[in-house]
Write a protein that binds this DNA or RNA. Structure first.
Lengths: 221, 221, 221, 221
DNA sequence: CATGAATGAGCATTCATTCAT
DNA sequence: AATGAATGAATGCTCATTCAT
């Protein structure tokens, strides 16, 4: 018998009536984020999300209207949290090389600590960016994202520590690529090592070091 | 209209009866590869794959037995073609630095030319490597893949042109990461530029150059 | 007609939305009981059951989860109704011979009046008892069933009216066999008479008499 | 993957080309008899029957034309073998009581030894005798079957050892019922004993004895 | 006589969604 | 603000059967 269906009238855990819209939506988003990150948009099931929530499944439609709208909200939330974390970095206070190092380190650490975000982005690419296109919010945030790298680059070039032909967008891409891959391609890559998808702590630290070094070697004169 | 109309579907494009199993399976695999790469395992529909084939949908089950088995066959084919292409590289004939450059260039070019492969791998990671685990074939091929990088590294270190602490697995990861991202994260990344997901030719060449340079700067003493 | 007609099925009899789970499940069970009894588990079609219901086919899965679970529920219901009817017999109030007569009569009459029950049991045997094995409910009810015969036997033996070597299980089997066959083997047996599967009233009465007599002659000293 | 489909081109054991139609048909019938007896008409699968044969599945259609025709042939064969065995009984050589005893004993023993026959008959009843109706062969054989009992009855009544109101058809029914049930209702009945569906040898002998006794007690004056 | 390749029609089941309260 | 009941439209899959050689 499928776990999703009521199947024989066992109406499960008693959906705690919160009477608190904010808590309810937050709970839905949290559960949905895990679900969409874990299974992707097509693989995730509204029923399963409902099962893992504290409120009833009907609430998803009450507050979000559709699976697509819920997914969009999840995606926007994930991007927003990432940008918020990024915003705490005060790169301008650091000399360019240190700033770049900090940026790469942050990117690496954040993605490692937030595989849900990484997987949501990977899934969004599987969907040809269908939802991202719809989101004004994310587009605006991303626009500002590139200026962060840009400012570091400019300062570095001006100070003569970075090579003159440094392209911020290209650099941003390289940083993202190196950090993203660790998390996003865990499962296929780990086959080479013949071990589990998550690296031991020491290997993670080593990998982090090398990514930072790779980017800096490339940027420095 | 009578109340219980038979409602027969209009028989599509004339299913050319090949009586040629090899052609039939090849056709199924080709169509399925596009479909799974385009929509992912969960998003792809057996019915849609059938629609795009020259034979009937029933043949999928005749030759492959299930959606899962078909997907696995698709995945194995994609990996096999990639390794076959890689095998044509004669890196041993080149000096280490040139060999590394050739390897990075090949990886970049192959993935750019074969987004289906890239997307299948990305999707497989969304599925936590569920299918890759099942495939002896792929595991064996991957094992040999790492030795290619390894040999180049060893020669480079021995010759004193590469840094002594070069880790082949780590290098392989960096190369993969940089090349993979271009294709896999096209849709989310292109939002930054506010243009379409595929870069103009000149930009592609520029990106290729920089990836090669980044890797070489890192590997060289 | 356009080449790609939507071909919508004519919506049947108006699915009265009861909003009454009990009525809905009862309706499903009733219809399914007839269907499974008529065609057996493998012969019965979920679609046909749906067609005969007052609610939509989807409700079967909403309330029962699968064809197998529905069949099990049907089987359990059939056994339960039989045991409930049996429980109304107050055999202890009758002298042993009369009690045995009443028991045989009841068995005969119930099975004749409930061919659905008989056929479900016959079908369950075709399935090697696959579903019965799963049902705690039925196993428990059956356990108590044998005690009914047992008590009558014991009293009859104690009173000296029944033969001393009477085996309750064996007697139960004989009674069941004689009554079951009338209904279960109707179609093959009626070929001998070259008439329809159901006997005329007078013949039924005669047969009942003889079954009762056969059992009593065997049990009495 | 389902065991029936070719699924990945393993064309199984090499279908021995017999070039002997009689052996081929006999083989098909034998395998089909087991299959239909085991799973019933609806539960049996042409593919599974083919799998268990020495020739290819296509032969079923070559020699029998359809699943229905094959089933009918199986049914006719089963009845024919039973009647053939019955024909070896020389009841006329025995005094009436001994003849009846022999007949009951034979019926019991044959059905116990040939559960396939019993299950085919049970299944045929589930199908409302749909196939039996079509078979001239079986109808003719059955007609003669009743005369066997009839002759024994007549002799017994004439000799004054059997009760005068003995009805051959009714007696035939009782004999059949008692013997059939043992085999046909094995699975549901065994639940009462809480043991496996087949009785130990001693219990079988005991049950046989009691059936014989029950019939004789009823028939004798 | 024999068969590998191919299939239309149907089957159980699932999914996101809406109705009625 | 919240929800249990209900569902149309697919979805992956199977079955007996036929075609072409």
């Amino acid at each position: 018998m499928p776990p999703t269906a009521p199947a024989k009238r066992a109406p499960r855990a008693a959906p705690t009536r919160t009477n608190d819209p904010e808590r309810t939506t937050a709970n839905i988003l949290e559960v949905a984020t895990h679900a969409f990150a874990d299974k992707g948009f097509d693989g995730a099931r509204i029923d399963e999300i409902a099962e893992a929530m504290h409120t009833s499944k009907r609430m998803i439609y009450y507050y979000f209207g559709s699976k697509e709208a819920l997914y969009l909200a999840v995606l926007e939330g994930a991007y927003q949290r990432m940008r918020a974390a990024e915003a705490t970095l005060d790169l301008d206070a650091l000399p360019p090389a240190k700033a770049l190092e900090a940026l790469v380190g942050f990117t690496h650490d954040y993605q490692l600590a937030n595989p849900d975000f990484v997987r949501l982005v990977a899934n969004e690419n599987m969907l040809h960016g269908a939802f991202l296109k719809q989101s004004k919010t994310i587009r605006e945030q991303n626009a500002s994202a590139i200026t962060t790298v840009q400012r570091v680059c400019e300062r570095g070039v001006r100070d003569g520590v970075f090579r003159g032909d440094l392209d911020p967008i290209d650099l941003h891409m390289s940083i993202s690529a190196l950090c993203f891959f660790n998390v996003a391609n865990r499962y296929t890559f780990s086959l080479i090592f013949e071990r589990g998808p998550t690296l031991p702590k020491s290997a993670v630290a080593k990998r982090r070091e090398r990514i930072v070094e790779m980017v800096l070697r490339f940027a420095l004169k």
